[in-house]
């Protein structure tokens, strides 16, 4: 293509058209903050990891279980708790190793792959925690139903029911609350990471398309 080669000639000769940056200006730039998408992913990821780990510390169910006199359930919850912590530590380790791998000297495709993988780990961590929220809510409800004296009134009502009207209503309501909760989270994530990564994911798709 003739035009492109014309441009190539002009391009290679061109050394004068840029305002040159001085050494001093470069020194100043070195101490400025990066605004790269990876930096933002790192910050947000650490906040997410911290937030969910904190939630696990704060919402300790032990007291609640004692109140309900459901001590026989304790052992199961303890096991669940240990498994939970092992999974959390594994996620944090994975996130760290993924992040370390990100390097601008890799090929463009590899770099994008590494960035998207790091993000995916954190995303999976968040989904895991949401899953745990759902599981423990269901467990909590069942336990409350079996042990808590506060729910006596509802139990009476269910016992009086001809069909299963009341229990169906309760289950529907709880499911609805959880679905709304999950959808809000999902939207939040779409927006947050969509904003940060739209360009990168588009370019990654484009690059993968070339190699098909």
């Amino acid at each position: 293509m003739e035009e492109l080669d014309l441009l190539k000639k002009a391009w290679q000769k061109d050394t004068q058209s840029f305002q040159q940056v001085t050494e001093n200006e470069i020194y100043k730039m070195l101490h400025k903050n990066s605004s790269s998408s990876v930096k933002w992913i790192l910050i947000i990821s650490i906040l997410e990891l911290a937030l969910w780990t904190l939630m696990n510390v704060i919402f300790n169910a032990d007291e609640y279980i004692k109140q309900m006199h459901a001590e026989e359930m304790m052992i199961y919850l303890k096991v669940l708790n240990y498994i939970n912590w092992a999974v959390i530590l594994w996620f944090i380790y994975r996130f760290y190793t993924n992040y370390i791998k990100i390097s601008t000297t890799n090929s463009t495709k590899q770099l994008m792959h590494d960035i998207l993988k790091t993000r995916k780990t954190v995303q999976n961590y968040v989904w895991y925690n949401l899953g745990m929220v759902v599981v423990s809510s269901v467990l909590g409800f069942v336990m409350a139903f079996l042990y808590s004296p506060d729910l006596g009134l509802i139990k009476d009502q269910i016992a009086q029911d001809e069909g299963n009207g009341t229990i169906i209503k309760i289950v529907c309501m709880l499911s609805l609350v959880m679905i709304v909760f999950l959808v809000i989270f999902w939207l939040f994530y779409k927006l947050l990471y969509g904003f940060l990564l739209r360009r990168l994911s588009n370019n990654y798709k484009e690059l993968k398309k070339i190699d098909l």
């Binding site: 605004s35 998408s37 990168l200 370019n203």
Partner: peptide, 17 residues
Amino acid sequence: TWAYRVALNTAITLYRK
């Protein structure tokens, strides 16, 4: 040679317009 690679990667993947 090293610099243009890092620069391209930054422009394509890290920089948010």
